[in-house]
C-alpha cells in the first residue's frame, strides 16, 4: 500500500458516499444517470467475487463490502425508492454499446483464461467507460448540480491517483498490470474535459453548464 493508492481509495469512497448522501438527503436522483450506477454495481460485482475465494486484508475486504453495498443502495434508490425523480428521458446512453465490446475484449485480452480472471478483466474494462452515460446525460441536460460535479471530481481523481500508484509500484516493487494501467489511462482521459470545466467553473463558484 502507498499513499497514492490509499488517497485514491479514499477519494473513490468519498465519491460513492457523496452521491449516496446527495440522493438520500435530497430524496431526488435528478441529473444522475441510473445507467452509470448500474454499470458501477456490475463493475464491483464482477471484480469483487474474490471476496468469496481469497482474503487479502481487513481493509481490502471492508472496502469491497462498502463499495458493493453503497452501489446497490444507490441503484435501489434510483430505480425503486425514488423512481419518480429519475430523469429517464435524459439517461438514454445505449449501454449495450459498452457492455458487448467490453465483454468481447475481456475474452480476448486477459491475464488468464479463468472465469474469475475474465470477470475481473471485464470489470476493469467496464469501469473505464462506466461514467459515459453520466457524462452523456450532463451534455444532454446541459448542466449538473454542484454536488454532482464534486461526485464526478472525486470519482475521476481516484483513478488518476491510481495511475501514480502504478508508477510508484513499478519503480519500487517492479509490479505493473498492463490491463489495469491502459484501462486506467483511458478512464482518466475521459474525465479531462470535465476536470477542465470543474476547475475553471465550479471551483470559481459558477454552475457547471454546457456548452462551456
Amino acid at each position: 500500500m502507498n499513499i497514492f493508492r490509499l488517497t485514491g481509495d479514499l477519494s473513490h469512497l468519498a465519491a460513492i458516499i457523496i452521491l449516496l448522501l446527495k440522493i438520500w438527503k435530497s430524496r431526488s436522483c435528478a441529473g444522475i444517470s441510473g445507467k452509470s450506477q448500474v454499470l458501477f454495481a456490475l463493475v464491483f460485482t464482477t471484480r469483487y467475487l474474490d471476496l468469496l475465494t481469497s482474503f487479502i486484508s481487513l481493509y481490502n475486504t471492508t472496502m469491497k463490502v462498502i463499495y458493493i453495498g453503497c452501489s446497490y443502495a444507490t441503484v435501489y434508490l434510483i430505480y425503486m425508492k425514488l423512481k419518480a425523480t429519475y430523469d429517464g428521458n435524459h439517461d438514454t446512453f445505449r449501454v449495450e454499446f459498452l457492455i458487448v465490446p467490453v465483454g468481447g475484449l475481456a475474452f480476448l485480452v486477459n491475464h488468464d483464461f479463468s472465469p474469475l480472471e475474465i470477470l475481473w478483466t471485464f470489470s476493469i474494462y467496464l469501469e473505464s467507460v462506466a461514467i459515459l452515460p453520466q457524462l452523456f446525460m450532463i451534455s444532454k441536460t446541459g448542466e449538473a448540480e454542484t454536488i454532482t460535479t464534486h461526485y464526478l471530481f472525486f470519482l475521476g481523481l481516484y483513478r488518476a491517483l491510481y495511475l501514480i500508484n502504478w508508477i510508484w509500484r513499478f519503480y519500487f516493487e517492479g509490479f505493473f498490470d498492463m490491463i489495469a494501467i491502459v484501462a486506467g489511462v483511458v478512464q482518466t482521459i475521459l474525465y479531462c474535459d470535465f476536470f477542465y470545466l470543474y476547475v475553471t467553473k465550479v471551483l470559481k463558484g459558477k454552475k457547471l453548464s454546457l456548452p462551456a
Binding site: 493508492r5 481509495d9 473513490h12 471484480r47 474474490d50 481469497s54 487479502i56 481490502n60 472496502m63 469491497k64 463499495y67 486477459n110 491475464h111 488468464d112 480472471e117 475481473w120 491510481y162 500508484n165 498490470d177 498492463m178 489495469a180
Partner: peptide
C-alpha cells in the same frame, strides 16, 4: 502471460 495470483488492489 503474466500470472497474477490475486489482485491486491480494489
Amino acid at each position: 502471460s503474466q500470472e497474477l495470483l490475486h489482485h491486491d488492489e480494489l
